[in-house]
């Protein structure tokens, strides 16, 4: 029996069948959870599609009305999201890089501190957002107590259009543990000899940082930058849980607006058009970072 089977299926065909069989669930998942929805959303974006009625082809109408600003919320949400991205990405990168630099020094309890700084990442966004709402309460929150104590002016945090975005950025810095861990892994990959060589040449700490550390982690920095931009452009949780896009639309994040168009106003056509605009912007942003990366990312192996 066994012998016969081997004869019937040659090894190559069998290997092909086995491969497809093992990958089948994931391939089906790719088709029905990603590819088909992508194509459908592309089609719907050209349709007048309120969920109750059937989709009706309407050409570029959805896109035109978005860009012309017929619905003013589109540009408001673009503005809020870009402002947030411009603030959050550098803030998160600088902070998590600084933490990683600290953790990379010779120290007692590195594993403990690393785990502690990572902890906020694993908490449910709903629960931690509630704590931040309480901490940042203008009347009885801890933060204003601290500001008073330091003789600094109080803030309205989430409840003022000028302070809401910095407050969300600040809250986000708290949970940058995974970025820190990636930076730390990059730092620990730097061979010690490089520093030793510089020490022999009489380089100080600044030289070490500038001519060894920074170039050697530039590819990690690049990776975190790409992931950071993609993530920031899709910020949603804070708007949904804390601000509902306010005050005065200052935190009306793009994906929150998209969610609202789709699941509150049931305008699936407009929501799909917004989704595709986001997709293209994310793609372009990634491409731009990739294109400029060869100017500042140092690859030890030459081209990679």
């Amino acid at each position: 029996m066994r012998y016969k089977e081997k004869k019937l299926l040659n090894a190559k065909t069998k290997s092909n069948l086995v491969g497809w069989a093992f990958a089948l669930p994931a391939v089906i998942g790719f088709l029905f959870l990603n590819l088909v929805p992508m194509l459908l959303s592309g089609y719907y974006s050209f349709c007048d599609y309120n969920i109750i009625r059937k989709p009706v082809w309407s050409g570029f109408n959805n896109y035109i009305s978005l860009f012309k600003g017929t619905d003013t919320t589109f540009w408001l949400s673009v503005k809020a999201t870009l402002l947030y991205t411009v603030m959050a990405v550098p803030a998160n990168l600088i902070f998590s890089f600084a933490i990683a630099l600290l953790l990379n020094r010779d120290m007692v309890g590195r594993a403990f501190f690393r785990s502690l700084f990572y902890l906020p990442c694993i908490l449910p966004a709903v629960a931690s957002s509630f704590v931040w709402i309480l901490l940042m309460n203008p009347d009885f929150g801890l933060f204003n107590v601290i500001l008073d104590f330091l003789h600094l002016p109080e803030s309205k945090f989430f409840w003022d259009k000028s302070s809401v975005l910095p407050s969300i950025v600040f809250m986000g810095i708290w949970s940058t543990g995974s970025t820190q861990v990636i930076f730390l892994a990059g730092l620990q990959n730097i061979p010690r000899v490089y520093y030793e060589a510089l020490e022999i040449d009489g380089g100080n700490a600044w030289h070490k940082f500038w001519s060894v550390t920074l170039p050697m982690v530039s590819s990690t920095l690049f990776f975190n930058l790409v992931i950071g931009i993609i993530g920031a452009l899709q910020v949603f949780g804070a708007a949904y849980i804390i601000t509902e896009g306010g005050p005065n639309n200052a935190s009306l994040f793009y994906v929150f607006n998209l969610w609202r168009q789709a699941f509150k106003y049931m305008d699936m056509g407009k929501a799909s058009a917004m989704a595709w605009v986001l997709f293209v912007v994310v793609l372009l942003a990634t491409l731009v970072v990739f294109k400029t990366s060869n100017k500042w990312v140092y690859n030890e192996g030459g081209d990679q």
């Binding site: 929805p37 959303s41 719907y44 452009l233 998209l258 969610w259 789709a262 799909s272 595709w276």
Partner: peptide
């Protein structure tokens, strides 16, 4: 790399 928001509506 695909933003979750792109597929959520058709899904």
């Amino acid at each position: 790399m695909l933003p979750g928001a792109v597929t959520i509506v058709p899904q």
